[in-house]
Simulated assay, not measured.
Amino acid sequence: MTAQETSPALLRAKRDRRRALMLLSPGIAWMVLFLALPMLMVIWVSFWTQTTFAVTPDLTTASWERFLTTPTYLDAILTTVRIWLTVLVATVVVGYPVALYIGLFVRSKTVQTALLVACVIPFWTSFLIRVIAWRPMLGTEGAINVILMKLGIIHEPLTFLLFSEFSVLVGMTQIYCVFMVGPITFMLGRIEPSVIEAARDLGASFWTIFRRIIVPLSLPGVVVGAIFVSVMVLGEFATAASLSGRKVNLLGNIIVSQVGSLKWAFAAVAGVVLTLIITAVISLALRLVDLRKEM
């Protein structure tokens, strides 16, 4: 070995690389075993031959061709993307003002914590209970219709409130809004009050401060919240099945129905398509903001 290869700096660098590899190896092994290999298995199964009562490992593109040429499944993709976009916008519109109030206008950390805990109280009960609880609210004889009729705003029950795409949007927005509130509140809480005070001293109005300071500094929180909401909404099936009366067909519902029918290959195709959509959404979100730099 040469003197350069045995220099203390080089030996120390090699030792640091070995130590870093040892520290990373459990995480890498976990990712390979429980993420990469299962995903590769799903892709492989999507090319298996599917018959009425069985699936064989003979590779074919029949399931892919059927999925990509059937209007029902193409409509399911469009419906999934449309509902995802609508819920994403709705959670930002509803969640941002709540996060703004908690993160900037509430000075006490104790009160902030209490308000955030109040936002997650619904998660103390079952997911299905939270979904089904909307039925007595949105039904033709539900609370909303009864209140509107007693106030004289309507003269007959509104039928679109339940078992429709509207009810699915309402349910998903309520369920996942907290995942938008949390990250935005965290980022707003990091804004130094002195920055806002300096802007006020310079004569900036509230809307100027909001547009030029608050929104840019809270954008990483919006992106993180959007990732959380997107992953969960795109993979949804229970809310759509419970509140739409199976009138809204999402990719998640197709996967569940195909697995229930033991059509593993076709379910794998839908799973791969859904994974590609989620990956594209997350990649786009991460391109908007460098989270490693901002968080």
Rank of each mutant, 00 (worst) to 15 (best):
L234K: 02
Q258W: 12
V231Y: 00
G225T: 07
F210K: 07
L219W: 09
V269L: 05
N249C: 00
A268Q: 08
G221M: 11
F210I: 02
P216A: 03
V269P: 01
V229W: 04
N253L: 12
W207L: 15
G203C: 11
G252E: 00
G235V: 11
V231D: 02
T239F: 00
L251F: 00
V222L: 15
A270P: 09
V229D: 08
Q258N: 14
G252L: 03
K247N: 15
A268S: 15
L262A: 14
I254R: 02
S230K: 05
P220Y: 02
N249S: 10
Q258P: 04
G221V: 03
F228S: 08
G245K: 08
V233P: 06
V229Q: 03
G235S: 14
R212P: 00
G252Q: 00
L250P: 02
V259A: 00
Q258E: 15
R212S: 12
G245R: 01
G221D: 01
W207P: 00
T239D: 04
I255E: 01
G245A: 09
I227S: 13
S205F: 10
V256K: 03
G245W: 11
S230A: 12
G203S: 12
A267Y: 06
V256Q: 11
A267Q: 08
M232F: 14
V233G: 10
T208Y: 09
F237A: 09
G203R: 07
G252I: 02
K247E: 14
L243T: 03
P220K: 02
A204K: 11
I214W: 09
I214F: 06
I209D: 10
S218K: 05
L243V: 06
I214Q: 04
K263P: 01
A204S: 15
A240M: 04
I214D: 05
V259P: 00
V222Q: 03
L234Y: 05
S257L: 11
V229P: 11
G260T: 03
L219C: 11
L243R: 02
N253S: 11
V215E: 09
L251T: 07
I209T: 15
L219K: 14
G221P: 13
T208P: 01
K247A: 10
F266A: 12
S261N: 06
V231N: 01
L243D: 02
F228T: 08
Q258R: 13
A267G: 13
S218F: 08
S257N: 15
L217F: 12
A270F: 04
S261Q: 07
F206H: 13
L219D: 05
V233N: 07
T208A: 14
L250Y: 12
Q258T: 13
P220F: 09
E236M: 06
S205V: 05
M232G: 00
S218E: 06
S218R: 07
T239Y: 05
S242A: 15
S230L: 03
G225W: 05
G252W: 00
